[in-house]
Design a protein around this nucleic acid. Structure first.
Length: 959
DNA sequence: CAGTGAGCGAGCTTCCGCTTGACTT
């Protein structure tokens, strides 16, 4: 496989493409003298997080962004971790070459990859940019013969896009961490995708169904029927006394008629009365209308249409489709699968036409090849449509493929062949039938049919439908051959009730389609967009439907209210326009970014030609300002949704819950909402039901001793069991009784814990015995695990089982030992790393609350994600400590200075709360303490925000 | 969102878009 072995003597050329599969193909077309290798996508990017930021930028306030927002948005680029080997290989190959051809895709990203390659490889030989749109020998050789220069403006446009996405994502996500829940995310693409799903659900919630009725009549021609001339036809009531009968589409989403003057709304009684009045009526054909029918084939596949059809016809998710397609591509069965183009190369058109003639005959072949104009607005057209590869398409049977690969290939093959076939033609017929009811009303029924006289492309391929009730294109519906005036007998007339349905939820495929239409996302990302919003818990799947979570309602609500422009559906489209201007040299990246980030009116922005979006002229503030001043964002408000009857749904840190009344007030109720409840199913009645019974309980049974019901729950500190006290037990006041509670052991789980386990757990704390002085020793389970307690002296136990088994002698033996202070002291270090060269202290690895860390007794540094206790070297340990020392003190003092008051208060508040809780005089005291803690926390949060604001202002001033 | 004993190292989460393996399930 060594590419150099194929290289001819002298005049070696290195050609770099993006994909290894492509490299393999092209290699064969270029022959000796050329080495073809892949970059395997992008090779450099902005640093992902703090760990990837080069040391020299670490202290910078903008290091976290990877973009120097203080100096013309200069990006920091680092070679992607997983591309280091590939870059090394490319460098080696380049060292043996006399010329470099950058043959990445001809689109914005491809141009950028080429530029990054040039920057990283630093070639000393001539560099050429070479592009091609078709992988054939002629096209490739022509491309080599006529290279061009790198288009730096196009690269600028890509870089601007990259920086904007970074600023958006890395500035807005932390707002969500603070205001909604940690680890959430926001982004130009995912947030709009989420918003689409949320908005559809809002429509469903607001939707009011309408009931309407109509009649269906079965009419008989009185002739014996056959296949081409059935004896009966089924027709629906179309109008009464000339007034059209209302159908589903006549109703709005509010359940009311859109235009009540024009249509007749039949209710059940009315419909039944009319049916009865028509029972003995005589009917005749009033009109027969025949129109030619013509249908053209669908365009060849691009990524989105392939995902949609694979979903409809094969039941594949977007990700599965792409994985199967990737395999087909790698093994040379199909062309590239991430494309927004429906264009077929000449080679492909010829192959398709040859196959049409061979399989279906010349009658099915149009005179001229069909071409499909690009439908996608921001298409970059770097690739062909998705089609079988080669200049002669293999039939599915010839491929030898099996399973999913076979099915997907067959789909692609059929669609491609069909795209070069003739239109399907036929007739569509509408028959109107009239009759007079016994009450004098005139009723007109209507039926329509379709006959296909020439199937054309439908012989090969018919597109599926999202709606399972929808009729497919090639379905024929034949009506009896009747002419105007023909008498018909009504065999049966029935009244049918209907209800209008809310708009359907998105599926993966339909959401991707929507995103493409709105120019949001790219072929290479459609599948992962779905993955992202699923991973974040913004949506979940119910069958194939994408259902938004309550969490996504809170997130979208916040974004709409405070970052409206960023989740505007036209934001991306307008960005694309601006990027195009940058690519054409009509606008400059830096002023554009400055306007986006710092807002209008900032220095330099006025001179820029770029207009940061159209239609958002009312917005002058920049992103920076929006994420700095968070005081205006009321976290409680954005995550509260009224349900009705005084019930509010709230999205808390632990998930959604419903609440009635104020906390601690009389009549306050609260209950968890199942995480997989679809928002449109949360009715007032359901909320009442949830509030009526304690939620999330696993009912274990009754304690034979007390008669109290025992339940298992999942609480803040994990699963636990507790008892339900009978009605009327005072929960507050002097005689308050607290239910017994106990955490589950690690070995137990909520769904398997038994009543016996629970009763045993609730016996804790267990009295083990008394020591020589008569002080009671108890065994109990606490926050840090099982422990013994003697007065104020506590000792950890090793296992939870010991809580039940430990004897007095064993307990006394433990107390005879000196107290082990803290967890770290109790455990030996995980590893010893020798002596630190700087502090000259012994360095060890320990396990702490936040995972393993290295310490020399003075400085501590947590191991990074890539470090491993087993494999860590002493040198790495010293390095971590040195890093920590380098930034530690500076950061610490800064932090202390900035947030001095807040932590002090917090500690004080905590202590107060702890003391009062410990005192446990009454539950009232406890409630007060809890309240105070909450209040203190709020103050702390507010203070922190203020402190940050001050810091930000200082930064701005320093500029 | 139960409320239980001490002492004490933070660091990281996150974006979009271009590509495949290397992993585990």
């Amino acid at each position: 496989m060594s590419p150099t072995s194929e290289t001819a003597k002298g005049g070696r050329r290195l050609v770099i493409v993006e994909s290894p599969a492509k490299a393999k193909t092209i290699k064969g077309y270029l022959g000796p003298g050329y080495v073809v290798e892949a970059s395997v996508g992008h090779i450099r990017d902005l640093p992902n997080g703090a760990a990837e930021v080069p040391a020299k930028y670490k202290g910078e306030p903008w290091a976290r962004l990877g973009v120097n927002v203080e100096k013309d948005f200069q990006p920091i680029y680092v070679v992607n971790h997983d591309k280091k080997d590939q870059v090394k290989k490319l460098k080696e190959l380049l060292a043996e070459s006399d010329e470099l051809f950058l043959a990445t895709d001809e689109d914005r990203e491809g141009e950028a990859i080429a530029w990054h390659l040039q920057e990283v490889l630093k070639p000393k030989v001539p560099v050429r940019r070479m592009v091609f749109h078709e992988i054939t020998k002629d096209a490739i050789q022509a491309a080599v013969a006529s290279p061009r220069e790198l288009n730096k403006k196009l690269v600028d446009a890509q870089e601007t896009r990259r920086i904007l996405d970074r600023l958006y994502g890395y500035e807005v996500s932390p707002v969500l961490w603070k205001k909604v829940m940690p680890r959430l995310s926001a982004g130009r693409v995912q947030s709009v995708a989420t918003r689409l799903v949320v908005e559809r659900e809002r429509e469903r919630i607001a939707f009011r169904s309408a009931e309407y009725w109509d009649l269906t009549g079965t009419f008989d021609t009185g002739r014996p029927g056959d296949n081409s001339d059935p004896s009966t036809l089924t027709a629906r009531l179309a109008s009464v006394d000339g007034k059209r009968v209302a159908q589903g589409r006549d109703f709005g989403s509010n359940g009311l008629l859109k235009d009540s003057a024009q249509v007749l709304h039949l209710d059940e009684a009315n419909a039944r009365a009319l049916a009865a009045a028509l029972a003995d009526a005589s009917f005749a054909v009033r009109s027969v209308e025949s129109k030619p029918y013509r249908r053209s084939p669908y365009a060849p596949f691009r990524t989105t249409t392939l995902q949609q059809e694979a979903s409809r016809k094969l039941g594949f998710g977007a990700k599965a489709t792409m994985q199967v397609a990737q395999k087909l591509y790698e093994n040379g069965f199909i062309t590239y699968m991430r494309t927004d183009s429906t264009t077929l190369s000449d080679t492909a058109v010829n192959a398709a036409r040859a196959q049409v003639t061979q399989l279906y005959g010349a009658d099915y072949l149009p005179e001229k090849p069909r071409t499909y104009a690009g439908k996608v607005k921001n298409a970059q057209e770097a690739h062909e449509a998705i089609r079988p590869s080669g200049d002669r398409f293999r039939t599915p049977a010839e491929t030898g493929l099996t399973g999913d690969q076979f099915r997907l290939y067959e789909l692609i093959w059929k669609r491609t062949v069909a795209s070069q076939m003739k239109d399907a033609t036929g007739n569509s017929v509408t028959v109107r039938i009239g009759g007079r009811a016994s009450d004098g009303r005139d009723a007109e029924f209507s039926a329509s049919g379709k006959t296909i006289t020439f199937h054309g492309f439908m012989k090969a391929y018919v597109e599926g439908a999202d709606d399972p009730n929808a009729e497919l294109d090639d379905r024929e519906r034949r009506l009896p051959q009747v002419t105007e005036g023909d008498p018909l007998a009504a065999r049966e007339i029935t009244a049918d009730g209907h209800a209008t349905k809310p708009p359907a939820r998105y599926t993966e495929a339909s959401l991707v389609k929507e995103l493409e239409e709105r120019e949001i996302g790219r072929p290479s990302t459609y599948a992962s967009i779905i993955g992202t919003i699923l991973d974040r818990g913004y949506v979940f799947k119910k069958g194939t439907a994408l259902v938004p979570s309550f969490l996504s309602f809170a997130v979208v609500n916040l974004l709409e209210k405070h970052f409206g422009r960023l989740v505007d559906y036209d934001f991306t489209a307008s960005m694309e326009e601006d990027l195009d201007r940058i690519a054409r040299g009509e606008a400059q990246a830096v002023p554009w970014l400055r306007r986006f980030y710092f807002g209008e009116g900032t220095e330099g922005a006025a001179g820029g030609a770029a207009e940061a979006g159209n239609g958002d002229g009312d917005h002058l503030g920049g992103l920076k300002e929006l994420v700095t001043d968070l005081g205006a964002i009321d976290a409680r408000e954005v995550s509260s949704f009224p349900v009705g009857e005084g019930i509010v749904l709230r999205v808390g840190r632990y998930g959604p819950y419903v609440e009635r009344g104020e906390k601690d007030a009389e009549g306050h109720q609260r209950a968890d909402v199942p995480a997989d409840l679809a928002p449109d199913e949360l009715t007032v009645e359901y909320a009442e039901e949830l509030l009526a019974k304690p939620s999330g309980d696993f009912e274990l049974g009754t304690d034979p001793g007390t008669g109290h019901q025992i339940v298992a729950k999942d609480g803040r500190y994990g699963p636990y069991v507790t008892e339900i006290l009978p009605e009327g037990t005072p929960k507050t006041g002097k005689n308050a009784v607290k239910p017994r509670t106990a955490s589950l052991f690690k070995s137990m789980s909520l769904d398997t814990v038994t009543l016996e386990d629970a009763l045993k757990l609730m016996e804790l704390p267990r009295i083990v015995g008394k020591d020589a002085e008569g002080t009671e020793i108890t065994a109990q389970n606490g926050r840090y695990g099982p422990y013994l307690k003697k007065g104020t002296d506590s000792r950890s136990l090793e296992t939870e089982e010991q809580l039940f088994t430990i004897t007095l002698d064993e307990a006394l033996a433990i107390y005879a030992q000196p107290k082990q202070r803290g967890r770290a002291a109790a455990k030996p270090p995980l590893k010893e790393l020798g002596t630190d060269p700087v502090s000259e202290r012994p360095v060890v690895v320990k396990d702490g609350r936040f995972g393993p860390y290295v310490t020399d007794g003075e400085t501590n540094a947590t191991l990074r994600r890539d470090d491993d206790v087993e494999t860590i070297t002493p040198e790495r340990g010293y390095e971590l400590l040195a890093e920590k020392r380098a930034k530690g003190p500076a950061k610490k003092t800064a932090k202390k200075a900035a947030a001095k008051k807040a932590p002090a208060k917090k500690t004080a508040a905590k202590k107060t709360a702890a003391k009062k809780t410990a005192a446990k005089k009454t539950t009232t005291a406890k409630t007060t303490a809890a309240k105070k803690t909450t209040a203190a926390k709020k103050t702390t949060a507010a203070k922190k925000t203020t402190a940050k604001k001050v810091a930000a202002a200082a930064e701005a001033a320093a500029e």
